[in-house]
Amino acid sequence: MAQKTLIKLIVGSETIFFLALLMAFVYFSYVPTLNPRLVSRLDLTSTGLFTVLLLSSSFTFWRAEVSFRRGQTKQLRLWLIGTVVLGIVFLFGQGLEYRTLFREQLTISQGTFTTSFFTLTGFHGLHVLIGLIILSIVIYLAFLGDLDDPDSVLLPSVGIYWHFVDAVWAVVFMVVYVLPHVLADSTL
């Protein structure tokens, strides 16, 4: 109970942290005018694909929670591993994207757009990484057989964090990748 409350509070606090980064990004990319040259360098399709993978990791985690409640140890382990794999693939995708951008000389010091882009996505990636580390520990515990008390709040607490990380990405993806295209296409 207490753990879950704490995680909720921390997640609330983190939300504001990401809002600050997001506002900085919005400020530099949308004010006074959108910079389509740089946004067009972002690969909407491949990032979209990785986004789908990350968001589906929320689904796999939810399945893991269900298995946990039902005491199905085997499924629990499988779903957890699935979640971690999806998370790793997402990070891998982010790495690929960064590499492409670096090759085009779009580094963090190239301009305000890249500075705020790398900061925002980088901090999100960092959160994914932290989530993966926590999930690995959870998997380790699951294999040790320590996750057998259905009243334990460990998994639900980790879940709050993991769903939060996914939700943040959904917003980041909309604002960084999708919205510019929508705005550029509209007559505005």
């Binding site: 509070l9 606090s13 939300t15 942290f17 600050a20 900085a24 900061t119």
Partner: peptide, 17 residues
């Protein structure tokens, strides 16, 4: 909980700068 994240974000940005 609501105010410090904003400072932390600003400090992180400043460090990146």
């Amino acid at each position: 909980l609501a105010a410090f994240p904003s400072l932390n974000a600003a400090l992180a940005m400043l460090l990146i700068d």
